[in-house]
């Protein structure tokens, strides 16, 4: 009995290439399938990359001074609430995808995970002449934006030249803020007690 559908499929094959004229395509489902957005806030962030760099420098400093607190609470337990806030704040400002290994300061405050190819090292060769994306023609290429964003930043143009490592998928949906803080604290600790 199991052979029947296979045999049926074999005979139906020549027709399979043709789509019926009235094929139903639901809204928003296409190869270029992301809900249309205005990208307003994302572009605002890029325009104010220098300001955001300044804010982040203060903010990460503050987060690091709170290290004893995170330690007391436990980084594990702090993860959920911090992630909750981080996801919303960065989601609003950068359309953050929570890759968990934020490199916004190397990409002119334009989140590279919004690139349909998730390129972390620069634009692909498919960028349209108007600076828009090859895959999603309505979206300004995140790397054209990144190049713009890095210009006013203090470290932007140096950082964007760094070759980034591949994304560690196991860190998805984790807090980059806490990871950076924990690493920085560990680095400080190591500097204080070089014997260990």
């Amino acid at each position: 009995m199991a052979a029947e559908p296979a045999a049926g499929a074999a005979t139906a094959k020549p027709k399979a290439g043709k789509k019926p004229a009235t094929a139903y395509v639901p809204a928003g489902v296409s190869p270029v399938s992301r809900a249309r957005k205005a990208y307003t806030i994302r572009l605002w962030s890029v325009r104010h990359a220098r300001f955001l760099e300044w804010v982040y420098a203060r903010f990460s400093g503050m987060f690091l001074t709170l290290h004893p607190l995170w330690n007391a609470v436990g980084y594990q337990r702090a993860e959920a609430p911090v992630k909750f806030v981080e996801k919303r704040v960065k989601g609003l400002l950068f359309d953050c995808r929570m890759c968990g290994q934020c490199i916004l300061s190397s990409t002119g405050m334009s989140c590279p995970m919004n690139c349909p190819k998730q390129l972390r090292n620069g634009p692909c060769g498919g960028v349209r002449a108007n600076g828009h994306c090859e895959v999603e023609p309505d979206m300004p290429c995140v790397w054209v934006q990144a190049w713009k964003g890095t210009e006013p930043m203090r470290e932007g143009r140096t950082n964007i030249m760094n070759v980034q490592k591949p994304v560690d998928q196991s860190l998805r949906e984790t807090s980059a803020w806490l990871r950076v803080t924990a690493n920085a604290a560990a680095g400080k600790e190591a500097a204080r007690n070089p014997a260990q």
Partner: peptide
Amino acid sequence: FDLDCMSLLET
């Protein structure tokens, strides 16, 4: 798109 051309080169 697990790697990109750059990380592929490096790999």
